[in-house]
Design a protein around this nucleic acid. Structure first.
Ligand SMILES: [Mn+2]
Ligand SMILES: [Mn+2]
Ligand SMILES: [Mn+2]
Ligand SMILES: [Mn+2]
Lengths: 165, 165
DNA sequence: AAGAATTGTTAGCCATGGCTAATAATCTCA
DNA sequence: TGAGATTATTAGCCATGGCTAACAATTCTT
């Protein structure tokens, strides 16, 4: 028995190209680069969220306890515990058993940077006319996927369009 | 020996609140909701990227072969294979061994929605003045973290600010 | 100071989404 | 048509980031 073959696909004519299709706009290599960038960003987003939150807790309440980190992240304290171990490996925090969590200098730097970026996004969304609720919700995800160039554009826009304030 | 205690943290006075700290703006429960939303978005983003790309390949070249999906995603074909199995479970694609990949109606719907959203973001970034290169790169990550409200605002903005063209 | 409540730790589980290496099927073309 | 090139599959590995349940330490309250 001879091998089955797919119906030979009509080799898309130029004008059958789907408008909006990403692949129509760049080479496979370029597209792959973009996906790789996104995957790299994904590796750090959890870390950024934890560190930023720890800084917030320290600055607002005087200390960061694992329970509270878990509460605000919507995650169990077992999960927080494991993550704190990783953050220690990465030299972003220090912690002793049963004590609260502290930021290293490096951790503090990551936190400040994340916090600033977070703030930039929220301000931008608000300047665009997004509701408070949505702005804060969307910013939590968007913040990890903005290049410097985009962040700068967002800042410029907010500066120009700071409606009421 | 009596239990060690942390140096009792100064219970942050109202004006020691770090400006920009997220926690200053909402309850723990609300913040946790936002983080949960982001985690839910993360669950679907890979699926959306695969399905959108499969649709692009079908529409542009007539068929979606795993090799090409891998090439454009920057991922091995073993990875594509495993993911295609998951997409089948989810009823988003159909595939027979050694044949190319097809979209189900549901898969096609997901693809169209993703493609439209992707397009919305790219147009928006371009309208904002971001370079082509950055716009396409950032959109690949941002697209998975925009609410309907934000997408609509982006569309309105692009419509109003369609610079050249 | 004891008991209760809270907080932290650990073990073991799971799904996701990557990878390499080995093998198998299909396709191309000389 | 058959050999070599391409493409697909499978097995087995790994890190990440969740979870529950059991238990341990600390802190609070009386
Ligand atoms: Mn943040
Ligand atoms: Mn975030
Ligand atoms: Mn997309
Ligand atoms: Mn994407």
């Amino acid at each position: 028995m001879t091998a089955m073959t797919d119906p030979k696909p009509a080799p898309a004519t130029k004008d059958s190209t789907a408008k909006g299709a990403v692949s129509a706009h760049m080479s496979a290599a370029t597209q792959a680069d973009h996906f790789r960038q996104v995957r790299r960003a994904r590796e750090t987003e959890t870390i950024e969220d934890y560190v930023e939150l720890i800084a917030d807790l320290i600055d607002e309440t005087g200390e960061a306890r694992a329970v509270e980190v878990g509460r605000r992240l919507g995650v169990s304290s077992a999960t927080v515990n494991k993550m704190v171990a990783r953050l220690q490996q990465l030299d972003l925090v220090t912690a002793q058993p049963y004590r609260s969590i502290f930021l290293t200098d490096e951790g503090r730097a990551v936190a400040e940077k994340s916090r600033k970026r977070h703030h930039t996004i929220v301000e931008f969304l608000l300047a665009l006319g997004i509701s408070e609720k949505t702005a804060w919700a969307d910013a939590e995800g968007l913040e990890h996927h903005c290049s410097e160039e985009t962040l700068e554009a967002f800042e410029r826009f907010s500066k120009t369009n700071n409606v009421g304030k």
